[in-house]
Write a protein that binds this DNA or RNA. Structure first.
Length: 294
DNA sequence: CGCCAGGGTAGAC
DNA sequence: GTCTACCATGGC
């Protein structure tokens, strides 16, 4: 099969390493010769970048240019995002100048994102990655690119067929993950949850969040991650342990309770507005790197 | 041994 | 609505 290789022009504020180190999508890993391997829209894709601001090289068995442009939001006016964030307050201004290369991914498969984030509860990134990859290897379809064997993420029908016991062998962490994933898959099958509909631009963040949170295993944090990274709701504001720590440090006014109430979501929207998702990612990176290199 | 990991749920007030 | 105990498990 012919391999399509191409180069995408990016703006000066694009850093592939940083974007994928933020690990919003758990399916990327290192390949050879500086290539990173991922699975996108049912295809294996290899990407690499010579340096910050350099064009993005990719190869795949099909043309993935439009998929990649959307995924990395290459067509966004990132300078405008930087300006808007910097205008919010001093904390945001500093974070933008520290992490100007950050992007919030636009993942094409909300179902994969939903399963991934359900399995993220009280778990480490390596284990979440392991769970997602196990599910793909066992239940997805095999795909090969240049000797790199990967698997697509399985449809919800495949996951439902697998059943609780099989899923229990594939996931790492809480024993309730399989139950939660299956219950959510069943809600989608029954039509109570329609991820494709929630991804439409006319569905607002608040509505998407409400619908998502009706699923077991999907509370505020998971719902916000799905909404932000896979349903194109840029005003979602995920609060994980790192973001919480940074909020306590930089925003004493933030209403942080033992559990994230509605008050926090309202506060975030008021403070960060349409850029809340970007703000959350900046705070996450700050806290995440602080814990990695103390 | 205690603490922590990109939280969520059930049950109590 | 808000707070608590509990859930699994390996690494430090």
């Amino acid at each position: 099969m012919a391999i399509k290789t191409d180069r995408l022009e990016v703006d000066q504020w694009f850093d592939l390493e940083l974007v994928l180190d933020g690990t919003q999508d758990f399916r990327w890993r290192a390949w050879k010769d500086g290539w990173l391997s991922g699975v996108l829209s049912g295809h294996v894709v290899h990407v690499r970048q010579a340096g910050v601001g350099a064009s993005l090289e990719y190869r795949a068995n099909v043309d993935l240019e439009s998929v990649l442009r959307s995924y990395f939001r290459l067509d966004d006016d990132i300078a405008e995002v930087h300006d808007a964030l910097s205008d919010i307050d001093d904390t945001m201004r500093k974070l933008v100048s520290r992490f100007p290369y950050l992007r919030v991914l636009r993942q094409p498969d909300p179902w994969q994102a939903t399963v991934s984030y359900i399995c993220s509860a009280t778990n480490r990134i390596e284990r979440i990655t392991k769970s997602v990859e196990n599910i793909a290897c066992e239940l997805g379809e095999r795909r090969v690119l240049s000797g790199d064997v990967r698997h697509t993420f399985p449809t919800r029908e495949k996951v439902l067929e697998a059943g609780e016991e099989n899923l229990g062998e594939l996931t790492v962490g809480l024993k309730s993950f399989p139950k939660r994933v299956l219950a959510t898959a069943e809600r989608i099958r029954a039509g109570s949850l329609d991820l494709e509909h929630l991804a439409q631009p006319e569905v607002c963040y608040a509505e998407a969040r409400l619908q998502l949170m009706a699923s077991p295993g999907v509370a505020a944090k998971v719902a916000d991650c799905i909404a932000l990274f896979a349903l194109d709701k840029p005003d979602a504001f995920p609060v994980d342990t790192y973001v919480r720590r940074e909020l306590e440090r930089c925003y004493p006014d933030a209403p942080l309770g033992p559990t994230e109430g509605e008050a926090l979501a309202i506060w975030a929207r008021g403070t960060f507005g349409a850029r809340a998702g970007y703000a959350s990612q900046l705070l996450f990176l700050s806290g995440y790197f602080a814990s990695k290199n103390p």
